[in-house]
Amino acid sequence: MPTLNFTPNLRRHVETPAAPVKGATVRQVLEMYFQVNPQVRGYILDDQGALRKHMAIFLNQELICDRSDLSDSVQENDDIFVAQALSGG
């Protein structure tokens, strides 16, 4: 089952426990996760369901290609990491 992890910077605002989550695409994995952790959705996705402008999702250490529909395919043992784009010095 794919494993979903989040930047620790989110923990100040909302609980984001790492979890193995079923799904064949990044979208499916996130939607499954949001069923258990509904409050996390708004921190990751915007009103239209796209990845927030300054957030990033790594699939096996590579940035995903589809930030709007999150259609990148996910395999059984993949690692998904949700991060924020840090700025400033």
């Binding site: 989110l10 605002h13 708004g42 921190y43 915007d46 927030r52 300054h54 957030m55 924020q84 784009a85």
Partner: peptide, 8 residues
């Protein structure tokens, strides 16, 4: 206004 994480 949490910036990266949106409006709450």
């Amino acid at each position: 206004d949490l910036g990266h994480f949106g409006v709450k």
